[in-house]
């Protein structure tokens, strides 16, 4: 049943169904909220929709918001009124708040995850992950910096995202915090003259980098795989930082008030199954949470793998976020 119809409609539909006995004729609907790039023709959405609909005999409907933060913001605006059955695309920095909304129900899924950290969360299922990294063009930057102090001492120009409007931007602020703790503010002050500009989101920053406005851009270690696999360009690389690299783990969860909890649970199972996980690398350009049976696509083997993974536990990330952003703002406002 579609809960968006005005109240009279379900009654009417039910009556009609009773009269005609057509209750089973219409497939059930599963509404999945996700971020916009997930469902474009280049994203994993179309393949996952097709695969899951073939299994469930249901109708999967996408509803999108700009990014993970926009997704959570939309859920909060909708509150108990949300039509979502499943939400795909929050990350570890957002899940404490998502949990606090009390909208999510525990999930039964437990897959053999290949994450750089232990996964133990009863509300959310990880479906892909990646390391944040500064991406550069080998021809323009022959000797990339080996850590944040190195980068700050160089005259390399970087473009980053605003932690107040973008999830990668927030990831970078937490990365510096995780790597340098109490010294994070000093690192940002030293980095200030390297920062060309701060963009509202990832795509603006990446476009500036490709247009030659900066030597390096904050992105993911997996970004060079796109250029290699789609464009046949092996000139892009991610700089290895010896402090370690901060992780982004993207997760999905199901809404407690869903009228199709069985479908929601089945979708989450499908999301971490081989069929869906095999689609992730070359559509979302992230590492799949469960390595597909056929392995990672060729080209992923060439990617830089950090020596150490950094990640704050969700609650810690939530507590550190405000002060870390304020530290960033103060240092770059000088």
């Amino acid at each position: 049943m579609n809960p968006t119809r005005p109240p009279a409609a379900p009654v009417l539909a039910l009556t009609l169904a009773l009269v005609t006995g057509a209750a089973t004729a219409e497939p059930r609907i599963l509404t999945v909220y996700t971020y916009d790039s997930f469902v474009t023709e280049w994203g994993p959405g179309p393949a996952i929709e097709q695969g899951f609909e073939a299994l469930c005999g249901c109708d999967l409907r996408w509803v999108t918001a700009g990014d993970g933060a926009a997704l959570l913001s939309r859920l909060r605006l909708e509150g108990a009124r949300t039509r979502a059955d499943v939400v795909v695309g929050l990350d570890t920095n957002l899940i404490t708040e998502a949990a606090a909304s009390a909208l999510f129900a525990p999930v039964a899924q437990d897959a053999p995850y290949d994450l750089p950290v232990e996964w133990d969360d009863e509300l959310f299922v990880p479906y892909d992950w990646g390391y944040f990294a500064f991406v550069f063009d080998r021809a323009r930057v022959p000797e990339p910096p080996a850590n944040f102090p190195d980068l700050a001492a160089s005259d390399l120009r970087i473009v980053i995202q605003d932690p107040r409007s973008s999830t990668p931007g927030l990831g970078l602020v937490l990365w510096v915090k995780a790597a340098h703790g109490a010294q994070a503010g000093a690192i940002w002050e030293a980095l200030a003259d390297n920062v060309v500009t701060v963009t509202p989101g990832w795509s603006e920053a990446y476009a500036l980098f490709l247009a030659g406005e900066a030597d390096m851009v904050l992105s993911y270690t997996t970004s060079p795989a796109y250029h290699l696999i789609v464009e046949g360009d092996d000139g892009k690389a991610a700089a290895r930082f010896d402090e370690g690299h901060y992780l982004q783990i993207e997760v999905a969860g199901r809404i407690a008030s869903s009228e199709v909890p069985d479908l929601a649970e089945a979708f989450l199972a499908y999301l971490v199954s081989d069929a869906a996980q095999a689609v992730i690398p070359t559509t979302n350009w992230m590492y799949p949470a469960v390595t597909p049976a056929a392995g990672l696509p060729e080209g992923f083997a060439t990617l830089m793998i950090p020596d150490r993974a950094l990640l704050f536990a969700p609650r810690e990330a939530q507590e550190l976020r405000g002060p870390a952003i304020e530290e960033w703002r103060a240092a770059l406002s000088r």
Partner: peptide, 29 residues
């Protein structure tokens, strides 16, 4: 102004009210 000011502003010195609204709605709820 929001996207223009932020992208060309070079950093948080160029924070506009609109960005503050964006942050309040998106990240802080």
């Amino acid at each position: 102004s929001f996207a223009v000011a932020l992208t060309l502003g070079g950093g948080p010195r160029a924070t506009t009210v609109e960005l503050a609204i964006f942050q309040a709605i998106r990240f802080e709820g």
